[in-house]
Write a protein that binds this DNA or RNA. Structure first.
Length: 585
DNA sequence: GCCGTTTTCGGCCCGACTGTTTTCAGTCG
Protein backbone atom coordinates (compact mmCIF):
# COMPACT_ATOMS: atom_id res chain seq x y z
CA UNK A 1 0.00 0.00 0.00
CA UNK A 2 1.36 3.45 -0.83
CA UNK A 3 1.26 6.35 1.58
CA UNK A 4 -1.83 8.00 0.10
CA UNK A 5 -3.81 4.79 0.40
CA UNK A 6 -2.58 4.37 3.97
CA UNK A 7 -3.56 7.95 4.75
CA UNK A 8 -7.08 7.14 3.49
CA UNK A 9 -7.24 4.15 5.83
CA UNK A 10 -6.19 6.33 8.79
CA UNK A 11 -8.87 8.91 7.87
CA UNK A 12 -11.43 6.12 7.76
CA UNK A 13 -10.29 4.81 11.15
CA UNK A 14 -10.76 8.32 12.55
CA UNK A 15 -14.33 8.44 11.23
CA UNK A 16 -15.19 4.99 12.48
CA UNK A 17 -13.82 5.83 15.92
CA UNK A 18 -15.91 8.99 15.86
CA UNK A 19 -18.98 6.88 15.04
CA UNK A 20 -18.17 4.72 18.04
CA UNK A 21 -18.07 7.84 20.20
CA UNK A 22 -14.38 7.48 21.02
CA UNK A 23 -12.30 10.17 22.72
CA UNK A 24 -12.21 13.07 20.23
CA UNK A 25 -8.49 13.56 20.79
CA UNK A 26 -7.86 9.99 19.78
CA UNK A 27 -9.91 10.62 16.65
CA UNK A 28 -7.80 13.67 15.92
CA UNK A 29 -4.60 11.72 16.44
CA UNK A 30 -5.54 9.45 13.53
CA UNK A 31 -6.50 12.40 11.33
CA UNK A 32 -3.19 14.05 12.10
CA UNK A 33 -1.24 10.88 11.42
CA UNK A 34 -2.96 10.69 8.01
CA UNK A 35 -1.98 14.24 7.28
CA UNK A 36 1.59 13.67 8.41
CA UNK A 37 1.78 10.86 5.86
CA UNK A 38 0.45 13.01 3.04
CA UNK A 39 3.15 15.61 3.45
CA UNK A 40 6.00 13.17 3.99
CA UNK A 41 9.13 14.29 2.15
CA UNK A 42 10.97 10.98 2.49
CA UNK A 43 9.85 7.74 0.87
CA UNK A 44 7.62 5.87 3.30
CA UNK A 45 9.45 2.60 2.62
CA UNK A 46 12.67 4.11 3.95
CA UNK A 47 11.02 5.25 7.18
CA UNK A 48 9.43 1.85 7.65
CA UNK A 49 12.55 -0.18 6.91
CA UNK A 50 14.70 2.01 9.15
CA UNK A 51 12.04 1.99 11.88
CA UNK A 52 11.91 5.80 12.03
CA UNK A 53 8.16 6.38 11.61
CA UNK A 54 7.71 7.74 15.12
CA UNK A 55 10.28 10.46 14.42
CA UNK A 56 7.63 12.08 12.20
CA UNK A 57 5.58 14.77 13.92
CA UNK A 58 2.06 13.44 14.50
CA UNK A 59 2.98 9.76 14.24
CA UNK A 60 3.43 7.95 17.53
CA UNK A 61 3.82 4.39 18.68
CA UNK A 62 0.28 3.17 17.93
CA UNK A 63 -0.20 4.91 14.57
CA UNK A 64 3.37 4.08 13.57
CA UNK A 65 2.81 0.37 14.08
CA UNK A 66 -0.41 0.50 12.06
CA UNK A 67 1.24 2.38 9.21
CA UNK A 68 4.08 -0.14 9.14
CA UNK A 69 1.62 -3.02 9.03
CA UNK A 70 -0.32 -1.43 6.16
CA UNK A 71 2.85 -0.60 4.28
CA UNK A 72 4.29 -4.10 4.41
CA UNK A 73 1.16 -6.28 4.40
CA UNK A 74 -1.41 -4.09 2.67
CA UNK A 75 -3.95 -4.66 5.42
CA UNK A 76 -4.52 -4.03 9.08
CA UNK A 77 -6.37 -6.32 11.46
CA UNK A 78 -7.39 -3.38 13.67
CA UNK A 79 -9.02 -1.63 10.69
CA UNK A 80 -10.74 -4.81 9.49
CA UNK A 81 -12.23 -5.36 12.96
CA UNK A 82 -13.38 -1.76 13.15
CA UNK A 83 -15.08 -1.98 9.78
CA UNK A 84 -16.92 -5.12 10.85
CA UNK A 85 -18.83 -3.01 13.34
CA UNK A 86 -20.47 -0.85 10.65
CA UNK A 87 -21.72 -1.42 7.11
CA UNK A 88 -18.94 -0.62 4.62
CA UNK A 89 -20.68 2.21 2.78
CA UNK A 90 -21.54 4.21 5.91
CA UNK A 91 -18.37 6.26 5.38
CA UNK A 92 -19.83 7.76 2.19
CA UNK A 93 -22.35 9.66 4.34
CA UNK A 94 -19.58 11.86 5.74
CA UNK A 95 -19.36 13.60 2.35
CA UNK A 96 -22.82 15.15 2.87
CA UNK A 97 -22.83 18.75 4.15
CA UNK A 98 -24.32 19.05 7.61
CA UNK A 99 -23.90 15.40 8.52
CA UNK A 100 -21.31 14.40 11.08
CA UNK A 101 -20.56 11.34 13.13
CA UNK A 102 -23.27 11.89 15.75
CA UNK A 103 -26.09 12.22 13.28
CA UNK A 104 -24.85 9.38 11.10
CA UNK A 105 -24.73 7.19 14.21
CA UNK A 106 -28.34 8.00 15.04
CA UNK A 107 -29.43 7.35 11.45
CA UNK A 108 -27.76 3.96 11.55
CA UNK A 109 -28.93 2.93 15.03
CA UNK A 110 -32.55 4.02 14.60
CA UNK A 111 -33.23 3.54 10.89
CA UNK A 112 -30.42 1.26 9.70
CA UNK A 113 -29.55 3.93 7.15
CA UNK A 114 -26.02 3.37 5.81
CA UNK A 115 -26.03 4.60 2.22
CA UNK A 116 -26.85 7.79 0.35
CA UNK A 117 -29.80 6.19 -1.47
CA UNK A 118 -31.32 4.84 1.76
CA UNK A 119 -30.80 8.18 3.44
CA UNK A 120 -32.51 9.97 0.59
CA UNK A 121 -35.50 7.63 0.85
CA UNK A 122 -35.69 8.05 4.64
CA UNK A 123 -35.65 11.83 4.31
CA UNK A 124 -38.46 11.72 1.76
CA UNK A 125 -40.72 9.29 3.64
CA UNK A 126 -40.57 11.40 6.79
CA UNK A 127 -38.81 8.91 9.05
CA UNK A 128 -35.70 11.06 9.44
CA UNK A 129 -37.72 14.02 10.75
CA UNK A 130 -39.04 11.93 13.67
CA UNK A 131 -35.60 11.10 15.09
CA UNK A 132 -34.43 12.82 18.29
CA UNK A 133 -32.48 15.95 17.43
CA UNK A 134 -33.78 15.86 13.85
CA UNK A 135 -36.76 17.64 12.33
CA UNK A 136 -38.37 18.65 9.06
CA UNK A 137 -35.67 21.21 8.31
CA UNK A 138 -32.86 18.78 9.03
CA UNK A 139 -34.36 16.29 6.59
CA UNK A 140 -34.73 19.00 3.94
CA UNK A 141 -31.14 20.13 4.49
CA UNK A 142 -29.83 16.61 4.15
CA UNK A 143 -31.64 16.30 0.81
CA UNK A 144 -30.05 19.57 -0.31
CA UNK A 145 -26.69 18.27 0.82
CA UNK A 146 -27.13 15.07 -1.17
CA UNK A 147 -28.05 17.07 -4.25
CA UNK A 148 -25.04 19.32 -3.84
CA UNK A 149 -22.73 16.35 -3.37
CA UNK A 150 -24.04 14.74 -6.54
CA UNK A 151 -23.89 17.80 -8.76
CA UNK A 152 -20.41 18.89 -7.67
CA UNK A 153 -17.72 16.92 -6.03
CA UNK A 154 -17.45 20.03 -3.87
CA UNK A 155 -14.03 20.80 -5.27
CA UNK A 156 -13.02 23.53 -7.69
CA UNK A 157 -9.79 24.32 -9.46
CA UNK A 158 -8.29 27.61 -8.31
CA UNK A 159 -8.20 28.89 -11.87
CA UNK A 160 -11.89 28.14 -12.38
CA UNK A 161 -13.04 30.30 -9.47
CA UNK A 162 -10.39 33.04 -9.48
CA UNK A 163 -12.43 35.51 -11.53
CA UNK A 164 -15.62 34.93 -9.57
CA UNK A 165 -13.77 35.36 -6.28
CA UNK A 166 -12.10 38.59 -7.36
CA UNK A 167 -15.39 39.88 -8.74
CA UNK A 168 -17.24 39.18 -5.51
CA UNK A 169 -14.62 40.79 -3.30
CA UNK A 170 -14.68 43.86 -5.53
CA UNK A 171 -18.47 44.02 -5.24
CA UNK A 172 -18.10 43.87 -1.46
CA UNK A 173 -15.53 46.67 -1.56
CA UNK A 174 -17.97 48.73 -3.55
CA UNK A 175 -20.64 48.52 -0.83
CA UNK A 176 -20.90 51.83 1.04
CA UNK A 177 -20.86 50.17 4.48
CA UNK A 178 -17.76 48.07 3.79
CA UNK A 179 -14.41 49.48 4.88
CA UNK A 180 -12.10 46.56 4.13
CA UNK A 181 -12.80 43.37 2.22
CA UNK A 182 -10.48 40.46 1.57
CA UNK A 183 -10.61 36.91 0.34
CA UNK A 184 -9.25 34.55 2.98
CA UNK A 185 -9.22 30.77 3.19
CA UNK A 186 -7.47 28.30 0.92
CA UNK A 187 -7.97 30.69 -1.98
CA UNK A 188 -5.69 33.23 -0.30
CA UNK A 189 -3.20 30.44 0.37
CA UNK A 190 -3.35 29.70 -3.40
CA UNK A 191 -4.31 26.09 -2.97
CA UNK A 192 -4.68 24.34 -6.35
CA UNK A 193 -8.10 23.04 -5.32
CA UNK A 194 -10.54 25.01 -3.18
CA UNK A 195 -13.77 23.81 -1.61
CA UNK A 196 -15.19 27.19 -0.71
CA UNK A 197 -14.46 30.89 -0.76
CA UNK A 198 -14.11 32.87 2.47
CA UNK A 199 -14.64 36.60 2.53
CA UNK A 200 -13.88 38.91 5.44
CA UNK A 201 -15.19 42.46 5.66
CA UNK A 202 -14.82 45.16 8.25
CA UNK A 203 -17.95 47.21 8.70
CA UNK A 204 -20.05 49.06 11.22
CA UNK A 205 -23.23 47.80 9.57
CA UNK A 206 -22.85 44.01 9.42
CA UNK A 207 -26.56 43.36 8.84
CA UNK A 208 -26.62 45.54 5.74
CA UNK A 209 -23.55 43.82 4.31
CA UNK A 210 -24.98 40.36 5.06
CA UNK A 211 -28.21 41.29 3.29
CA UNK A 212 -26.25 42.60 0.29
CA UNK A 213 -24.16 39.43 0.13
CA UNK A 214 -26.99 36.91 0.42
CA UNK A 215 -28.95 38.80 -2.26
CA UNK A 216 -26.01 38.95 -4.70
CA UNK A 217 -27.02 37.96 -8.26
CA UNK A 218 -24.44 35.15 -8.30
CA UNK A 219 -26.09 33.47 -5.30
CA UNK A 220 -28.10 30.33 -5.98
CA UNK A 221 -29.24 29.60 -2.44
CA UNK A 222 -28.59 30.74 1.11
CA UNK A 223 -27.38 28.17 3.65
CA UNK A 224 -27.09 30.51 6.62
CA UNK A 225 -27.81 34.18 7.17
CA UNK A 226 -26.77 35.48 10.56
CA UNK A 227 -25.80 38.83 12.02
CA UNK A 228 -22.06 38.44 11.41
CA UNK A 229 -21.77 35.29 9.31
CA UNK A 230 -23.50 34.07 6.17
CA UNK A 231 -23.03 31.10 3.88
CA UNK A 232 -24.31 30.81 0.34
CA UNK A 233 -23.95 28.51 -2.65
CA UNK A 234 -23.19 30.31 -5.90
CA UNK A 235 -24.73 29.38 -9.24
CA UNK A 236 -21.53 27.56 -10.23
CA UNK A 237 -21.94 25.38 -7.12
CA UNK A 238 -19.19 26.75 -4.89
CA UNK A 239 -19.94 27.65 -1.29
CA UNK A 240 -19.01 31.13 -0.08
CA UNK A 241 -18.81 32.26 3.52
CA UNK A 242 -18.80 35.87 4.61
CA UNK A 243 -17.73 37.15 8.03
CA UNK A 244 -18.27 40.71 9.16
CA UNK A 245 -16.08 42.18 11.88
CA UNK A 246 -14.96 45.57 13.15
CA UNK A 247 -11.89 47.32 11.85
CA UNK A 248 -9.91 46.37 14.95
CA UNK A 249 -10.91 42.74 14.59
CA UNK A 250 -10.17 42.58 10.86
CA UNK A 251 -6.49 41.51 11.02
CA UNK A 252 -7.38 38.73 13.44
CA UNK A 253 -10.32 37.50 11.36
CA UNK A 254 -8.27 37.64 8.17
CA UNK A 255 -5.51 35.65 9.80
CA UNK A 256 -7.81 33.14 11.39
CA UNK A 257 -9.90 32.45 8.29
CA UNK A 258 -6.88 32.28 6.01
CA UNK A 259 -5.68 29.27 7.98
CA UNK A 260 -4.65 26.63 7.45
CA UNK A 261 -6.29 25.04 10.42
CA UNK A 262 -2.97 23.47 11.40
CA UNK A 263 -1.16 26.79 11.06
CA UNK A 264 -3.81 28.37 13.31
CA UNK A 265 -3.39 25.71 15.96
CA UNK A 266 0.33 26.48 16.09
CA UNK A 267 -0.34 30.21 16.32
CA UNK A 268 -2.80 29.73 19.13
CA UNK A 269 -0.60 27.48 21.19
CA UNK A 270 2.22 29.95 20.68
CA UNK A 271 -0.03 32.70 22.01
CA UNK A 272 -1.03 30.51 24.95
CA UNK A 273 2.60 30.01 25.93
CA UNK A 274 2.74 33.79 26.35
CA UNK A 275 -0.39 33.76 28.46
CA UNK A 276 -2.58 35.06 25.64
CA UNK A 277 -5.61 33.54 24.03
CA UNK A 278 -5.82 34.16 20.28
CA UNK A 279 -9.15 33.98 18.49
CA UNK A 280 -10.57 35.48 15.31
CA UNK A 281 -11.21 38.80 17.06
CA UNK A 282 -8.34 39.62 19.35
CA UNK A 283 -5.65 38.70 21.80
CA UNK A 284 -7.00 38.35 25.32
CA UNK A 285 -5.67 37.11 28.64
CA UNK A 286 -5.84 33.33 28.63
CA UNK A 287 -8.08 32.01 31.34
CA UNK A 288 -6.22 30.44 34.23
CA UNK A 289 -2.83 31.41 32.88
CA UNK A 290 -0.43 33.95 34.15
CA UNK A 291 -0.25 37.03 31.92
CA UNK A 292 3.49 37.29 31.45
CA UNK A 293 3.50 40.11 28.98
CA UNK A 294 0.98 42.86 28.29
CA UNK A 295 -1.39 42.27 25.37
CA UNK A 296 0.18 43.49 22.11
CA UNK A 297 -1.21 46.17 19.81
CA UNK A 298 -2.31 44.89 16.43
CA UNK A 299 -3.08 47.17 13.47
CA UNK A 300 -2.43 44.79 10.61
CA UNK A 301 -2.13 41.05 10.13
CA UNK A 302 1.68 41.08 10.23
CA UNK A 303 1.52 42.52 13.77
CA UNK A 304 0.04 39.24 15.00
CA UNK A 305 3.16 37.40 13.84
CA UNK A 306 5.46 40.06 15.27
CA UNK A 307 3.66 39.85 18.60
CA UNK A 308 4.45 36.15 18.67
CA UNK A 309 8.14 36.83 17.88
CA UNK A 310 7.74 35.60 14.33
CA UNK A 311 8.52 37.17 10.99
CA UNK A 312 5.24 37.64 9.08
CA UNK A 313 4.43 34.47 7.14
CA UNK A 314 3.11 34.81 3.58
CA UNK A 315 -0.36 33.19 3.19
CA UNK A 316 0.97 30.66 0.67
CA UNK A 317 3.32 29.20 3.29
CA UNK A 318 0.71 28.73 6.01
CA UNK A 319 0.40 24.97 5.60
CA UNK A 320 2.20 23.89 8.76
CA UNK A 321 5.19 22.67 6.83
CA UNK A 322 7.78 24.21 9.09
CA UNK A 323 7.00 27.87 8.41
CA UNK A 324 6.56 28.79 12.07
CA UNK A 325 9.99 27.45 13.05
CA UNK A 326 11.63 29.19 10.11
CA UNK A 327 9.78 32.44 10.87
CA UNK A 328 11.07 32.22 14.43
CA UNK A 329 14.64 31.95 13.12
CA UNK A 330 13.99 34.94 10.83
CA UNK A 331 14.93 32.74 7.89
CA UNK A 332 11.82 32.81 5.70
CA UNK A 333 12.64 33.01 1.98
CA UNK A 334 11.76 36.08 -0.06
CA UNK A 335 9.20 34.38 -2.31
CA UNK A 336 9.13 34.84 -6.07
CA UNK A 337 6.68 37.45 -7.39
CA UNK A 338 4.84 37.76 -10.70
CA UNK A 339 6.88 40.78 -11.69
CA UNK A 340 10.08 38.72 -11.45
CA UNK A 341 9.22 36.70 -14.56
CA UNK A 342 11.07 37.83 -17.71
CA UNK A 343 9.98 35.16 -20.17
CA UNK A 344 8.59 31.67 -20.57
CA UNK A 345 9.27 28.55 -22.62
CA UNK A 346 6.42 26.07 -23.00
CA UNK A 347 3.99 27.65 -25.48
CA UNK A 348 2.05 26.42 -28.48
CA UNK A 349 0.91 28.03 -31.73
CA UNK A 350 -1.45 27.13 -34.54
CA UNK A 351 1.41 25.06 -35.99
CA UNK A 352 0.34 22.31 -33.57
CA UNK A 353 -2.72 22.55 -31.31
CA UNK A 354 -2.53 26.21 -30.24
CA UNK A 355 -5.26 28.67 -31.16
CA UNK A 356 -3.04 31.71 -31.80
CA UNK A 357 -0.42 32.33 -34.47
CA UNK A 358 3.26 32.72 -33.72
CA UNK A 359 3.01 36.48 -34.30
CA UNK A 360 0.00 36.82 -32.00
CA UNK A 361 1.72 34.88 -29.23
CA UNK A 362 4.77 37.11 -29.52
CA UNK A 363 2.64 40.24 -29.40
CA UNK A 364 0.82 38.94 -26.32
CA UNK A 365 4.11 38.13 -24.57
CA UNK A 366 5.37 41.66 -25.23
CA UNK A 367 2.08 43.03 -23.96
CA UNK A 368 2.70 41.18 -20.68
CA UNK A 369 6.08 42.87 -20.41
CA UNK A 370 8.14 39.74 -21.10
CA UNK A 371 11.59 39.94 -22.73
CA UNK A 372 11.56 36.54 -24.40
CA UNK A 373 9.20 33.81 -25.46
CA UNK A 374 9.99 30.20 -26.22
CA UNK A 375 7.88 28.33 -28.77
CA UNK A 376 7.53 24.61 -28.03
CA UNK A 377 4.94 23.06 -30.31
CA UNK A 378 4.22 19.34 -30.10
CA UNK A 379 6.40 16.78 -31.85
CA UNK A 380 5.19 14.28 -34.45
CA UNK A 381 4.24 11.46 -32.04
CA UNK A 382 1.51 13.71 -30.64
CA UNK A 383 -0.49 13.35 -33.85
CA UNK A 384 -3.70 14.05 -31.89
CA UNK A 385 -2.25 17.51 -31.26
CA UNK A 386 -1.07 18.00 -34.83
CA UNK A 387 2.55 17.52 -33.79
CA UNK A 388 5.27 18.86 -36.12
CA UNK A 389 7.52 16.60 -38.14
CA UNK A 390 11.12 17.66 -38.86
CA UNK A 391 10.21 19.58 -42.02
CA UNK A 392 7.49 21.64 -40.39
CA UNK A 393 9.75 22.19 -37.38
CA UNK A 394 12.57 23.42 -39.64
CA UNK A 395 10.15 25.80 -41.34
CA UNK A 396 9.05 27.15 -37.96
CA UNK A 397 12.67 27.64 -36.89
CA UNK A 398 13.38 29.60 -40.09
CA UNK A 399 10.33 31.79 -39.53
CA UNK A 400 11.36 32.51 -35.95
CA UNK A 401 14.87 33.45 -37.08
CA UNK A 402 13.36 35.89 -39.58
CA UNK A 403 11.22 37.43 -36.88
CA UNK A 404 14.18 37.70 -34.51
CA UNK A 405 16.22 39.49 -37.17
CA UNK A 406 13.74 42.32 -37.16
CA UNK A 407 13.57 42.52 -33.36
CA UNK A 408 15.42 44.57 -30.82
CA UNK A 409 15.07 43.97 -27.09
CA UNK A 410 12.90 40.90 -27.49
CA UNK A 411 13.90 37.37 -28.37
CA UNK A 412 11.93 34.36 -29.59
CA UNK A 413 13.58 31.07 -28.70
CA UNK A 414 13.13 28.01 -30.90
CA UNK A 415 12.07 24.88 -29.12
CA UNK A 416 9.86 21.83 -29.14
CA UNK A 417 7.71 19.99 -26.69
CA UNK A 418 9.22 16.69 -27.65
CA UNK A 419 7.36 13.51 -26.75
CA UNK A 420 9.13 11.07 -24.50
CA UNK A 421 8.34 7.73 -26.14
CA UNK A 422 7.41 4.64 -24.17
CA UNK A 423 11.00 3.43 -23.92
CA UNK A 424 12.37 6.79 -22.78
CA UNK A 425 13.76 7.74 -26.19
CA UNK A 426 12.80 11.04 -27.77
CA UNK A 427 10.51 11.70 -30.70
CA UNK A 428 13.23 13.62 -32.61
CA UNK A 429 16.81 12.50 -33.22
CA UNK A 430 19.60 14.50 -31.57
CA UNK A 431 20.58 16.12 -34.93
CA UNK A 432 17.17 17.79 -35.07
CA UNK A 433 17.13 18.72 -31.39
CA UNK A 434 20.56 20.32 -31.83
CA UNK A 435 19.08 22.86 -34.26
CA UNK A 436 16.84 24.27 -31.50
CA UNK A 437 17.58 26.66 -28.65
CA UNK A 438 16.01 24.31 -26.09
CA UNK A 439 13.84 21.22 -25.64
CA UNK A 440 10.90 20.57 -23.31
CA UNK A 441 10.49 16.79 -22.98
CA UNK A 442 7.05 15.52 -21.93
CA UNK A 443 5.06 12.30 -21.66
CA UNK A 444 1.79 12.23 -23.63
CA UNK A 445 1.24 8.49 -24.03
CA UNK A 446 1.51 5.14 -22.23
CA UNK A 447 0.43 6.56 -18.87
CA UNK A 448 -0.08 3.16 -17.30
CA UNK A 449 3.50 1.94 -17.02
CA UNK A 450 4.61 0.68 -13.62
CA UNK A 451 6.32 3.17 -11.33
CA UNK A 452 9.70 1.60 -12.05
CA UNK A 453 9.19 1.72 -15.82
CA UNK A 454 7.89 5.30 -15.80
CA UNK A 455 10.73 6.47 -13.57
CA UNK A 456 13.28 4.84 -15.85
CA UNK A 457 11.54 6.37 -18.88
CA UNK A 458 11.80 9.92 -17.51
CA UNK A 459 15.36 9.46 -16.33
CA UNK A 460 16.58 8.20 -19.69
CA UNK A 461 14.94 11.20 -21.37
CA UNK A 462 16.73 13.53 -18.96
CA UNK A 463 20.03 11.85 -19.71
CA UNK A 464 19.81 13.23 -23.24
CA UNK A 465 21.98 16.38 -23.24
CA UNK A 466 19.51 18.21 -25.49
CA UNK A 467 16.63 17.88 -23.03
CA UNK A 468 16.67 21.27 -21.36
CA UNK A 469 13.56 20.86 -19.23
CA UNK A 470 11.10 18.17 -18.21
CA UNK A 471 7.45 19.14 -18.88
CA UNK A 472 4.51 18.43 -16.52
CA UNK A 473 6.32 15.73 -14.59
CA UNK A 474 3.38 13.65 -13.32
CA UNK A 475 0.86 14.25 -16.13
CA UNK A 476 -1.96 14.88 -13.67
CA UNK A 477 -5.08 16.79 -14.67
CA UNK A 478 -6.59 18.22 -11.52
CA UNK A 479 -10.01 16.75 -10.69
CA UNK A 480 -9.95 14.60 -13.82
CA UNK A 481 -6.83 12.51 -14.25
CA UNK A 482 -4.59 11.00 -11.60
CA UNK A 483 -0.84 11.52 -11.89
CA UNK A 484 0.96 8.57 -13.41
CA UNK A 485 3.00 6.35 -11.13
CA UNK A 486 6.52 7.73 -10.87
CA UNK A 487 9.20 7.94 -8.20
CA UNK A 488 9.49 11.69 -7.90
CA UNK A 489 12.53 11.84 -5.57
CA UNK A 490 14.43 9.61 -8.01
CA UNK A 491 13.46 11.88 -10.92
CA UNK A 492 14.59 14.93 -8.94
CA UNK A 493 17.92 13.24 -8.19
CA UNK A 494 18.37 12.60 -11.91
CA UNK A 495 17.42 16.20 -12.71
CA UNK A 496 20.08 17.42 -10.33
CA UNK A 497 22.68 15.01 -11.71
CA UNK A 498 21.99 15.84 -15.37
CA UNK A 499 21.31 19.54 -14.95
CA UNK A 500 17.77 19.20 -16.28
CA UNK A 501 15.36 21.96 -15.33
CA UNK A 502 12.00 20.83 -13.96
CA UNK A 503 8.89 22.59 -15.22
CA UNK A 504 6.25 24.03 -12.97
CA UNK A 505 3.40 23.84 -15.45
CA UNK A 506 1.24 26.86 -14.64
CA UNK A 507 -1.87 25.72 -16.46
CA UNK A 508 -4.54 25.70 -13.70
CA UNK A 509 -5.61 22.22 -14.78
CA UNK A 510 -2.09 20.90 -14.18
CA UNK A 511 0.02 22.88 -11.69
CA UNK A 512 2.55 20.10 -12.10
CA UNK A 513 5.02 19.55 -10.43
CA UNK A 514 2.92 19.90 -7.29
CA UNK A 515 4.01 22.54 -4.73
CA UNK A 516 4.59 19.91 -2.05
CA UNK A 517 7.66 18.64 -3.92
CA UNK A 518 9.45 21.89 -4.61
CA UNK A 519 11.20 22.25 -1.24
CA UNK A 520 12.78 18.83 -1.84
CA UNK A 521 13.68 19.76 -5.43
CA UNK A 522 15.30 22.95 -4.18
CA UNK A 523 17.20 21.05 -1.51
CA UNK A 524 18.58 18.76 -4.20
CA UNK A 525 19.69 21.78 -6.24
CA UNK A 526 17.11 21.38 -9.01
CA UNK A 527 16.10 24.54 -10.91
CA UNK A 528 12.52 25.42 -11.77
CA UNK A 529 11.02 26.94 -14.92
CA UNK A 530 7.49 28.33 -14.71
CA UNK A 531 5.72 27.63 -18.00
CA UNK A 532 2.08 28.37 -18.85
CA UNK A 533 1.69 25.60 -21.48
CA UNK A 534 -0.20 28.36 -23.32
CA UNK A 535 -2.43 27.30 -26.19
CA UNK A 536 -3.72 30.84 -26.75
CA UNK A 537 -2.65 34.40 -26.08
CA UNK A 538 -4.72 34.55 -22.90
CA UNK A 539 -3.10 31.27 -21.81
CA UNK A 540 0.10 33.21 -21.15
CA UNK A 541 -1.64 34.82 -18.21
CA UNK A 542 -1.75 31.46 -16.47
CA UNK A 543 1.80 32.27 -15.41
CA UNK A 544 0.32 33.93 -12.32
CA UNK A 545 -1.10 30.60 -11.19
CA UNK A 546 2.35 29.09 -11.57
CA UNK A 547 3.85 31.83 -9.46
CA UNK A 548 1.29 31.12 -6.72
CA UNK A 549 2.30 27.46 -6.68
CA UNK A 550 6.00 28.32 -6.77
CA UNK A 551 5.41 30.51 -3.72
CA UNK A 552 3.66 27.63 -1.99
CA UNK A 553 6.76 25.59 -2.82
CA UNK A 554 8.96 28.11 -0.96
CA UNK A 555 10.70 29.16 -4.20
CA UNK A 556 12.51 32.45 -4.61
CA UNK A 557 13.34 34.19 -7.85
CA UNK A 558 16.82 32.65 -7.68
CA UNK A 559 15.26 29.17 -7.92
CA UNK A 560 13.34 29.93 -11.12
CA UNK A 561 15.34 30.33 -14.32
CA UNK A 562 12.83 32.40 -16.26
CA UNK A 563 13.33 35.28 -13.87
CA UNK A 564 16.70 35.81 -15.53
CA UNK A 565 17.03 38.70 -17.99
CA UNK A 566 17.50 37.99 -21.69
CA UNK A 567 21.21 38.64 -21.43
CA UNK A 568 21.65 35.75 -19.03
CA UNK A 569 19.02 33.21 -20.02
CA UNK A 570 20.79 31.92 -23.12
CA UNK A 571 23.73 30.59 -21.11
CA UNK A 572 21.29 28.61 -18.94
CA UNK A 573 19.68 27.03 -22.01
CA UNK A 574 23.10 26.03 -23.33
CA UNK A 575 24.50 24.85 -20.01
CA UNK A 576 23.57 21.19 -20.28
CA UNK A 577 24.69 20.81 -23.90
CA UNK A 578 28.00 22.54 -23.41
CA UNK A 579 28.55 20.96 -20.03
CA UNK A 580 30.87 23.74 -18.92
CA UNK A 581 28.55 26.72 -18.45
CA UNK A 582 27.14 26.98 -14.95
CA UNK A 583 23.39 27.00 -14.63
CA UNK A 584 21.47 29.60 -12.67
CA UNK A 585 22.29 32.84 -10.94
C1' DG B 1 -3.45 8.73 20.64
C1' DC B 2 0.25 12.34 20.72
C1' DC B 3 3.28 15.32 23.02
C1' DG B 4 6.83 18.00 26.16
C1' DT B 5 11.33 25.42 27.74
C1' DT B 6 4.06 24.56 32.19
C1' DT B 7 7.35 17.43 30.11
C1' DT B 8 5.86 11.25 31.25
C1' DC B 9 0.48 13.05 33.01
C1' DG B 10 -2.83 16.04 31.70
C1' DG B 11 -3.82 18.74 28.37
C1' DC B 12 -5.22 18.96 23.40
C1' DC B 13 -8.09 26.16 19.40
C1' DC B 14 -12.43 28.20 19.66
C1' DG B 15 -16.65 30.71 18.08
C1' DA B 16 -21.04 31.23 14.77
C1' DC B 17 -25.15 29.39 13.09
C1' DT B 18 -28.93 26.08 12.76
C1' DG B 19 -32.41 23.44 14.37
C1' DT B 20 -33.88 21.39 17.83
C1' DT B 21 -34.72 22.48 22.03
C1' DT B 22 -36.56 25.42 26.48
C1' DT B 23 -30.73 25.76 27.48
C1' DC B 24 -27.99 23.17 24.02
C1' DA B 25 -25.92 19.64 20.73
C1' DG B 26 -24.10 19.11 16.28
C1' DT B 27 -21.56 20.79 12.53
C1' DC B 28 -18.39 23.61 10.33
C1' DG B 29 -14.38 26.16 9.50
Amino acid sequence: MNKDEIADVLENIARLLELKGENPFKVRAYTQAARALEILAEPLETLVSEDRLTSVDGIGKATGEKIAELSSHGRLAYYDDLREEFPPDILTLFAIQGLGAKKIKILWDALKVHSVTKLERACKDGSVATLPGFGEKTAANILKGIEHMRSHAGEFRFGDVAQIAEGLVNDLRGHPDVNLAQIAGSFRRKKEIVRDLDFIVSTKQPEAVMAFFTAHPLVENVLAHGATKSSVILKNGIQCDLRAVTGAEFPFALNYFTGSKEHNVRMRSRALSRGWSLNEYRFSAAEGRELREPLPDVCEEADIYRALDLDPVEPELREDRGEIDVAERHALPHLIECTNLRGTFHNHTTASDGRASLEDMVAAAKELGLEYLGIADHSRASFQANGLDDKRLAAQVARIQDLNDGEAGFRIFTGTECDILKDGSLDFPDEILATLDYVVASVHSSFTLTEAEMTKRLISAMENPYVTMLGHLTGRLLLSREPYQVNIPAVLDAAAATGTIIELNANPRRLDLDWRWWPLAKEKGVKCVINPDAHSTSGLQDLIFGVGIARKGWLTKEDVINTLPLARIEAVLKAKRGGSVRQGH
